[in-house]
């Protein structure tokens, strides 16, 4: 029988949080983390993962998520419960931090569009990492907002393809995970 309890009526403020998770680099660990998100109905806005300490066998997962304060608290507690998770850090809550994303953006075109694309890339300090006579691939690093802005400007200039890494983030100052 399905529960038919009514939803809570008061609405809590939804906020965006960047969460860094240090995990043992073992098979299935990413599936555990994203399975927890999908199974419990949490949002993943961005996800990055890579090994950060080969000797100790540790990987760092960065997840950007949104939710009410109660949901964010739950997400952290649920992540902390996973056996291969060493540490969970809510960078948004724990003070100032740096967030960066890398994007590879392909623009196809000739003439005025091509010149304009290259000029805007200069303003954004995007580097052309590949070029043919009718295309560029730009590499851009920055906040997600900066990447979004650049992509929006490229749209009328024959934007062809976008690859983004998702957000990586680290706390400012001496604090380490």
């Amino acid at each position: 029988m399905a529960s038919v309890y009514e939803e809570q009526t008061h609405i809590e403020q939804i906020a965006r949080h960047t969460i860094a998770i240090l995990v043992s680099n073992e098979p299935g660990v990413l599936a555990r983390v994203i399975g927890l998100y999908s199974g419990r109905g949490y949002n993943i806005d961005s996800l990055t993962v890579a090994e950060t300490d080969h000797i100790a066998g540790l990987s760092r997962i960065t997840i950007v998520t949104t939710g009410t304060p109660m949901i964010i608290e739950q997400i952290k507690a649920q992540l902390g419960r996973l056996v291969p998770v060493h540490k969970v850090s809510d960078l948004t809550e724990e003070g100032p931090h740096v967030e960066r994303e890398l994007a590879l953006i392909k623009v196809v075109g000739t003439g005025e569009h091509r010149v304009e694309a290259l000029r805007i890339a200069g303003i954004f300090r995007a580097r052309a990492v590949d070029s043919t006579i009718d295309s560029f691939v730009f590499e851009l690093t920055g906040s997600s907002e900066k990447v979004d802005a650049f992509i929006n400007l490229m749209k009328p200039l024959s934007l062809a393809d976008v690859a983004r890494t998702g957000v990586v983030a680290i706390a400012r100052g001496t604090e380490a995970l």
Binding site: G28, A31, R32, L36, G39, V83
Partner: peptide
């Protein structure tokens, strides 16, 4: 088995 039982165990191993 580890895939199927991941969400219904505290932990699993292969």
């Amino acid at each position: 088995t580890t895939g199927i039982t991941r969400p219904c165990t505290k932990h699993n191993y292969l």
